[in-house]
Amino acid sequence: MTNNQQRTRSMIRGGLSLLVAAAFYEAVARSGLFPAVLLPTIPTIVSTLIDMLADGTMFEHAFFTLYRVLFGFVLAVIVGLPLGILMARFPRVEHFFLPLISALMPIPSFALIPLFMLWFGIGNVTTVLIVFYAATFPMAFNTWSGVRSVNPIWLRAAGAMGADENSLFWKVIIPGASPFIITGMRQAFLRAWIGVVGAEMIAASDWGLGWVIFDAKEFLNADVMLAALVVIGFIGFVFERLVFGSLERATVQRWGMVRVAKG
């Protein structure tokens, strides 16, 4: 079976699971067990979504959310990636930061929102910092594991061929750690995406997908909430499968550094 056929089949399977779940939801929504305002049918959600897309508000909300998440995520990569590398290369850096990371990583970013609001007020600064907090630790942690797992024989071979510290770093350690670095980015983005929506609910005003959901509860607009959830899920899916998926296919999968599940 070719790669394309496999991909088509897995897409059909994925679509089927979604369809079954949607049908189940629709059945419950139409059963009359719950008030229609609280559990709107799929056609209602879709028409709300189309209205919000048509007047551009949904795009604007999504734009603000994306801006915050990408800002924080890029910041997290800029800090987390070198930090992970330094930790793996220098025991002193590791001894200082590892306990810190171990202690801070389990704290949910949500738990910091009220504190950040006191410090930085309502708006972009707080949301971006929450994203940054959520994403930095998985980035640093995975990079650290990746650099430590670089096969020593690559370093030996490169050294025998005259590689200096600089080439060793860019041409052996970074590509050698790339499976972990990409995993780190994936986890960092996932946590960033969860963090941004939560932060927007209470620490953003007027714009953002999280704010839309929180604001809609005031007016009992379950359809707006669900429409925003669809957009949140869609964007998350696009990043996970298309952005990071393509990155992985173009690098570590092509190099045979990670195994690909068949079927």
């Binding site: 096969n151 690559w154 030996r156 071979a157 490169a158 590689a163 200096d164 080439s167 050698g176 550094m257």
Partner: peptide, 25 residues
């Protein structure tokens, strides 16, 4: 130096890229 372990090659470089490494250095 040639080692016993097949993993000595850099998986992220093609055959040509691997052979070029020492020349790059």
């Amino acid at each position: 130096v040639v080692f016993q372990d097949f993993a000595q090659l850099f998986p992220w470089r093609t055959a040509l890229g691997n052979v070029s490494f020492g020349l790059e250095m």
